[in-house]
């Protein structure tokens, strides 16, 4: 399924770009993140304890950030596995200057998500909503982190 979600940071584009892919920021802002480590391959291995609707339990995930075009675009690849099923997501992340908030940055995530198992049979109906909730939590937490960082 496809989802589209935008969030506006009250921070300039360069700052958002600098931190949005930073592992420290990610570690502390990914919802329920228990571990987040870079592997030699450049892929991050994460463990996330999620609890939103059917997406419940510990998920082990591989996160990869590729195709960067600073400071406006990168692609996020996430492969997650948990008890209720597996998640395979490819997300295009687009950063642009926010129109409505001067000096702000709008980040838009356009993702194609595949799920299996109970996530598919039970969860898919609510998955778009769940994904948005999780993304919302993430961006909000990331913004807080970024503000702390500066």
């Amino acid at each position: 399924m496809r989802i589209e979600y935008s969030y506006t940071f009250d921070l300039p584009k360069d700052t958002v770009w600098r931190y949005i892919q930073d592992d420290r920021v990610l570690r502390s802002s990914l919802p329920g993140c228990q571990t987040f480590e870079e592997m030699p391959s450049g892929i991050y291995a994460a463990e996330l304890g999620l609890n939103t609707g059917p997406v419940k339990g510990l998920f082990s995930a591989e996160v990869q950030q590729v195709d960067q075009i600073p400071p406006t675009y990168y692609r996020l690849l996430v492969k997650g596995k948990g008890k209720p099923g597996e998640i395979d997501a490819v997300a295009d992340m687009i950063l642009e200057e926010a129109e409505e908030a001067e000096g702000g940055t709008k980040i838009t995530c356009v993702a194609e998500i595949e799920v299996t198992g109970v996530l598919a049979s039970v969860g898919q109906r609510v998955m778009v909503g769940v994904a948005k909730v999780i993304l919302g939590q993430f961006f909000k937490a990331a913004e807080k982190e970024m503000q702390n960082e500066i």
């Binding site: 595949e114 799920v115 299996t116 198992g117 109970v118 598919a120 049979s121 039970v122 898919q124 109906r125």
Partner: peptide, 8 residues
């Protein structure tokens, strides 16, 4: 991909 979407 063959995931059953109407499972409940």
């Amino acid at each position: 991909k063959g995931q059953l979407l109407s499972g409940t």
